[in-house]
Amino acid sequence: MNPSLTKKVIFDFFDGKATAIQRKYVEAWLADEANQETYYQYLDEWESQRPQYPVDAEKALASFQSVLDNSERVDTPVKTLKTIRPGWAFNWRGWSIAASILLVALLGGFLFRSKLLYKSYETAYGQTATYRLSDGTSVILNANSTLRVPRFGFGNNTREVFLEGEGEFNVTHTINHQRFVVRTADNFQVEVLGTEFVVYARERGKRVFLNKGKVKLELPQGQQLYMKPGNVVTVANSGKYQLTQAAPARPYTAWKDHWFYFDNTTLTEVAAQIRERFGVNVVVVDAALAQRRIAGNFKAEKVDDLLQILSELLDLNIVKTHQRIELRTPNYLN
């Protein structure tokens, strides 16, 4: 085919007007390296005829000129565009060994990175603890929870901590308005400047209760939500969330003094809370019993304290087996 015809076909191809056969032709034509040069020449011509928007090249050139003037870094090691030399192929074994070593080193560094950079605070089952962070923020951790904070201080950027479990944060407002971010699993995060709130992030879902100030939530789907004092946001594992306007603080903060707060709470939910806080597997064997609801404040530092209250309140039998504790009504038969 003659050159001018080729050019027309290629322009049509750029415009998206080429037929399948023409595409094949262009593909075959490109197999010759020299033609790839012509291809980019045509592409440049094509682009210059189809401006998308007025480009301010003068301004860009000025800043590029400063790059040219300021960095005479002639000795910079060359990082890019390594051409493959023929000898390379024969030495592939050496390369693969080097690559494996590098991979192991990187992996090791990667695995230990969080250990090196972050300090963990952990609470055991049935235990709560109060910590004061380097910026003055105080955190009360509920039982069975982990908080990771940067080992070497927060630096000048965002103050970031990672939470698994439940904790109450009393965040100090810094002079330079550094944001404080609590990250949890599944891309859920709470962002504040200075305020008091409780974050719950366990297997069953996530919940934030705001006591004072203002917080911003980043939900897993990329949505953002602002909370006002008294608001509770609950996020299910499915990603569905629900905002309750004005809630009393007590149900969300009772755990700080080893209290359980039940308000029309099913026994199933009670069992789940016991599992989370004491690490004891409590099973409600009887379906009707599982739906019974209780209300009230109960102080329990050990799991037995609460179980005793439950048995008296609901007239239950508590059967301790090897791995679990079963709750059943006295006349219930297997």
Partner: peptide, 9 residues
């Protein structure tokens, strides 16, 4: 520059 920006966009 202009043509490349046009292309990238």
């Amino acid at each position: 520059y202009t043509n490349l920006v046009n292309h990238a966009v």
